[in-house]
């Protein structure tokens, strides 16, 4: 940690450290943003504000993790937002139909995750098996998923059962529920980092042809990446349902591109072969902190989007350049 002070010359140790932990530049940006937030609004570092930030951006964190698993292998998924919307609609409708009790909620969530898995399977099939170009093929499937979401829930507005959003926004033993989710996510991600599949996906992303010649089942690995992506998109949907407490067939539309931005902010290369899911989580938080900082510094409301857009563009450029410089 001490090696990442600003202004250090390019010591081999630093380069090695960023090589091993690609999310370090993101962590520095995140800490800087936290400090700036605290500077302009001391309350923003309080327990309550951080809880609010996390419960709002947990969905984007999950969605960015989802995106990372396909980017690892050099692919991209422009349908994650549509999968999120679809799963959101599916669980809302199921929970309402089954009466909104505890069992109903759990069953609906399980079916929602299966829905996400099925979507990921379709994406993986068209991209890895049929070998269509990922950007346009997943855009096509996103239209398809949006269609299903509109079929399941034609208009936005059906509320989630009270038990659902009370749990999501509630506390257990004085600790907010979302903190448990973040802890669970952290454990899963750290374990996943050591999993063989992660290494295989990175190998495919680095050079698919060499990976194939090395005996890796490239198609199956890419397919698994898309399935993981579908599952995490569904988890993101569970989070956003807890946050908004309602169903909306178009809720995820704008989130797809933010998930790509978060992945890049987290130090993962879009060309594949290098990156980390932890970085993507940090990237999602960076996006959240940028928008709260823009608010805290007192930007006039009509300028907020512009300043936020400029700040994200700057952070993206900075992240890409720092990562490249250190890794050369």
């Amino acid at each position: 940690m001490s090696a990442i002070e600003t202004g250090t010359s390019q010591r081999p140790g630093l380069a090695a450290l960023v090589e091993r932990f690609p999310f370090l530049p993101a962590l520095v940006i995140l800490l800087a943003l936290l400090a700036l937030n605290g500077w302009f609004q001391p309350n923003s570092l309080g327990f309550r504000a951080i809880t609010g930030l996390i419960s709002t951006y947990l969905a984007l964190m999950m969605l960015s993790v989802a995106q990372t698993y396909v980017v690892y292998a050099g692919d991209v998924d422009l349908s994650v937002g549509a999968i999120l919307s679809l799963v959101n609609c599916v669980i809302i409708v199921l929970m309402e139909r089954w009466g909104g009790g505890g069992i109903a909620v759990l069953m609906a969530c399980a079916l929602g995750i299966l829905t996400g898995l099925a979507c990921g399977l379709l994406n993986g099939f068209v991209v890895a098996v049929l070998r269509l170009q990922a950007i346009v093929a997943t855009f096509a499937t996103s239209i398809f998923f949006t269609g299903i979401a509109l079929y399941v829930l034609p208009v936005a507005g059906t509320p989630a059962p009270t038990i659902y959003w009370r749990t999501y926004g509630g506390r257990f033993f004085e600790i907010p529920f979302v903190f448990y989710v973040v802890a669970a996510l952290a454990i899963v991600l750290v374990m996943a980092t050591r999993a063989r599949l992660t290494t295989q996906m990175l190998a495919v992303g680095d050079d698919a042809f060499k990976a194939f010649q090395g005996g890796l089942p490239v198609t199956a690995i890419r397919l698994k990446g898309y399935m993981l992506c579908g599952v995490f998109s569904a988890l993101a949907a569970l989070c956003i349902t807890g946050d908004t407490a309602s169903g909306d067939p178009l809720v995820g539309g704008a989130m797809t591109l933010y998930s790509v931005a978060a992945v890049v902010l987290g130090g993962t290369a879009l060309s594949g072969g290098r990156g980390s899911v932890v970085g993507s989580v940090l990237g999602a938080l960076i996006i959240g902190l940028i928008s709260s900082l823009v608010f805290y510094v007192g930007t006039p409301s009509q300028w907020q989007n512009l300043v936020q857009g400029l700040a994200i563009l700057l952070a993206l450029m900075l992240g890409v350049m720092v990562t490249r410089r250190v890794q050369r």
Partner: peptide
């Protein structure tokens, strides 16, 4: 319906 339209559009593109 709009839903069916989108499903057909997406599938046709694929």
């Amino acid at each position: 319906d709009e839903s069916g339209r989108q499903m057909i559009f997406g599938a046709t593109l694929l």
